[in-house]
Computed example of a mutant assay.
Amino acid sequence: MVTDSALSDELNHPRMLESLAIGYSYHVQQLGGILREERRAEAKMSKKQRWALSAKVSLQNLCLTGAFLGSVWDSLSHTKAYGTDLIIDWKSVEGDHKEHGKAKNRVYWEQRGFDTLRPGACNTFTAPAGRVA
C-alpha cells in the first residue's frame, strides 16, 4: 500500500514514522485507560467541556508521539534541531482545531515529549489551561 516514492523520502521526512507513532500513542492511551475514561467523562459534559477534554487527550498523544520519535531520532542519523524544525513545520501548517488544540500547543507538547523522552512529561490533565487550549 505504500509506494516506493513515499518510502524513498521517509528517512529525510519521516511522516509515516510520525503517523505510526501517533497510532501507537493512542494504543498506549487505550491500555492506560485514558481513552475509556475520556468516553465515560464525556457523557456528563457540555459540548465545550468535551472539546477541552478532547484537546487534552490529543495533546497528550502528541507528547507521547514526540517521546517515541525523540527516542529513535539518533538512530535515523538526524540531529535534534532537525526534529524540532520538522515538528514546528508539521504542526504549525495544520492550524488550530478545537478537538486537537491550538497549533502552538501541539508544537509545544510534541516538542516536550521529543526533548524529554519521558511519557511522564505528558500529563496534559494537570497543565495550565493556556497549554491545553
Rank of each mutant, 00 (worst) to 15 (best):
W73G: 05
G23F: 06
G66Y: 07
M16I: 03
A127G: 09
L17Q: 08
R36K: 15
Y82P: 07
H100S: 10
L117M: 07
S54H: 14
D89P: 11
S5Y: 01
L20V: 05
V72T: 02
K48L: 06
Q60R: 11
M45K: 07
A52P: 05
P14R: 05
I22F: 05
N12K: 07
L59R: 02
G83F: 02
D9W: 09
T79E: 14
R106W: 00
G113D: 02
N105I: 05
G70S: 01
Y108E: 01
A67S: 05
A121F: 12
G113P: 10
K104D: 03
N12P: 05
L117D: 12
W90C: 12
R112Q: 14
G66E: 04
R36I: 08
G83R: 04
L17W: 09
I87E: 02
Y26T: 05
G130E: 15
R39N: 11
K44D: 02
V2H: 11
L53W: 09
V132D: 10
S75T: 01
P128F: 06
S92A: 00
Q60C: 00
G113C: 00
H78L: 12
L20W: 03
Y24R: 01
T126I: 13
P128S: 13
Q29A: 01
A52W: 02
Q29N: 06
A121V: 12
G66H: 04
H13D: 15
M1N: 14
K91E: 15
E10D: 09
